[in-house]
């Protein structure tokens, strides 16, 4: 999307344009003076081969991760995986039931928190914030920074502020939801801003010129038009939250829970990636098989969500 928008508004400052032009011309002249056609073709071929190798390695890595988990986890595939809880005594019949439910609850909580908060913040930053004011620029920079803070730091925040400290909720599932929500909030804000910015200003002008108020314009024109983009961003953010493990380790997603969780119950909860991690870290091979099967389960869910998001984006991309 970005290159297109760049193409639509090629407003390069004059000095920058001439700098680029000079740089380009110089490079090309150099290239011309030192070129030997046959050697060039050979070098070009090698270069392309190296590029293709890089792409192939990246794609191969993806395929290897999936195939390896599928092969390793195959013996454990079956309904037990979904219906059973974990058991140290007979790992063959162990499953992920409490972890699946835990992840489901966690994500439900994340969605409930992150969609209203993220979209509201994005609407403020795009539609209301006057960028000449320092505080609005600070909020903007702050959101970008938060998007790059390592997830384990959010775990520390959750531990110190939500589980203990000011909120003092204890190691409950709701604390896990809140921690994950804070973690993906910047991603949702950035995606929602992008979607809102993609709605052309002429739509806003048309609405305001009819005597609509600013909020009526946002609520009835801008947001409906931005929904596909916002939903895409939210899905991608949620799929990140599903796989997050590190922060949950700190806010109490215990590893061995055999019962279905509740939001505020204080007898522990777990999540799919946490349980996968726990199984994988055990030395017995049966548990590693289980971990691999769990990975496949998680990847299926994530791939489904990602494909849906990509489909949605392509479907609605060039509306204007």
């Amino acid at each position: 999307m970005r290159p297109q928008s760049a193409g639509n508004s090629p407003e390069i400052s004059g000095s920058e344009r001439s700098r680029l032009a000079t740089a380009g011309a110089r490079a090309v002249t150099l290239a011309q003076l030192s070129s030997q056609p046959r050697g060039d073709r050979f070098k070009g071929g090698i270069f392309l081969a190296l590029l293709l190798f890089a792409v192939a390695i990246a794609l191969l890595g993806l395929v290897a991760i999936i195939v390896q988990a599928a092969v390793k986890g195959a013996p454990a595939f079956g309904m037990d995986l979904i219906t059973n809880g974990p058991s140290t005594l007979n790992p063959e019949q162990s499953g992920f039931r409490p972890a699946l439910l835990g992840t489901l609850y966690l994500i439900l909580g994340v969605i409930l928190l992150v969609v209203p908060l993220g979209v509201s913040a994005a609407v403020y930053l795009e539609e209301y914030a006057d960028r000449t004011r320092w505080w609005n620029r600070m909020i903007e920079l702050n959101v970008q920074n938060l998007a790059g803070v390592p997830s384990i730091i959010y775990g520390i925040l959750g531990l110190a502020f939500i589980v203990r400290g000011p909120l003092d909720l204890g190691f409950i599932l709701a604390a896990g939801s809140m921690t994950l929500a804070l973690l993906v909030l910047p991603t949702v804000i950035l995606a929602a801003r992008e979607a809102i910015r993609a709605v052309p200003p002429s739509i806003r002008e048309g609405s305001l010129a009819l005597g609509a108020t600013k909020w009526q314009t946002i609520r009835r024109q801008v947001l409906p038009a931005a929904i596909p983009g916002v939903v895409t961003g939210v899905i991608l953010a949620i799929s990140r939250a599903i796989g997050e493990t590190a922060p949950l380790l700190l806010v109490g997603a215990a590893s061995f829970v055999t019962f279905a969780p509740t939001f505020f119950g204080d007898n522990g909860y777990t999540a799919l990636p946490v349980m996968i991690f726990n199984y994988a870290a055990r030395p017995q091979d049966e548990f590693r098989v289980l971990a691999a099967a769990g990975v496949i389960m998680m990847l299926i869910v994530l791939l489904a969500m990602n494909s849906f998001a990509i489909w949605l984006r392509n479907r609605y991309e060039q509306q204007w």
Binding site: A280, A291, L302
Partner: peptide
């Protein structure tokens, strides 16, 4: 490639380990 970016790191860790 975006799918690769979306794979949970715990899965990549298991791939590395196993």
């Amino acid at each position: 490639l975006e799918v690769l970016a979306g794979i949970p790191t715990v899965a990549i860790g298991i791939f590395g380990l196993v």
